[in-house]
Design a protein around this nucleic acid. Structure first.
Lengths: 140, 140
DNA sequence: ACATTTTGTTTACGGTTGTAAACTAAGAAT
DNA sequence: ATTCTTAGTTTACAACCGTAAACAAAATGT
């Protein structure tokens, strides 16, 4: 009884290639991943099949070789994954987790300005302290 | 051949309680999680056992009922999980992912300042653009 | 047309996770 | 001491995941 499909680590690698190329044949995906990883082509085929079953990819089957296209937007997928993970965290600690991410990620000047902008907006209504609700019955 | 143990979603819930309390008996954990979720006590016992096998928890077995204590620091666990997820992402998109997180998380005033501070430091050396390496053979 | 190569489909297998019952041992109550 | 209750251990089972071989169908080369 799973409500929302999630993407496994290996599946992410496949999707990234297809998102970046816009679309791709299995050969393209396999060539790239055989350079990035030590996966066998059979493994990569399995991942493509699973991504289709999960409705993250579709195959254009009008002619061979099939062309695979994403069915989910990359930014949406990122949004869902990241927020899904943050749901696990104590809300009191999310701020520091974000700071840690900032320090450990390469970020462009324009993204930095963007994030600062978002933070300034946030500061208008942000609380002095965020309460930990790890022991509360309450959802989230 | 798994190098680093990961914490599953359900296991996170257990750890959060024990981190917040500092230590806890199984009864305490079960009482709290039975209010937060619809898990049976048997399920929660299983999670506690698995967390011990993964070395995230240890039981103080000197007297009954056992007292369970965390073997991993909460901030370290968060750091590992979050960075592990971010490793899946196209590096070009991490900035926007962080912005999205900022917008969707409750963050305290002091954490906001902290993050802004980190961003300002980052801006000293940040590149104009971050290159996508989704198709590169290169690690990461 | 037939052999070979490429690409897609099916099957496989061990480990993890969500979910939990059953069993056992140790405390508590009478 | 015997029974009830609580807490810890063992077993279970289906879905998902990493990993891949085997098989089938289509395209390509000769």
């Amino acid at each position: 009884m799973k409500e929302i499909e999630t993407m496994s680590k290996a599946e992410w690698q496949v999707m990234r290639i297809i998102w970046t190329l816009g679309q791709a044949t299995s050969k393209e995906v396999i060539d790239i991943l055989e350079r990035k990883t030590d996966w066998k082509s059979a493994t990569i085929k399995t991942l493509i099949v699973r991504l289709q079953k999960k409705n993250f990819l579709k195959a254009e089957e009008t002619k061979r070789p099939y062309v695979y296209k994403p069915l989910i937007d990359e930014d949406l997928a990122i949004h869902q994954s990241v927020n899904n993970l943050f749901d696990n965290l104590c809300c009191m600690r999310k701020g520091q987790a974000i700071k840690d991410l900032v320090q450990n990620s390469e970020i462009s000047q324009s993204d930095i300005s963007d994030i600062v902008g978002a933070l300034n907006a946030k500061a208008q209504t942000a609380p002095e302290e965020v309460e930990c609700n790890c022991l509360e019955a309450n959802l989230s």
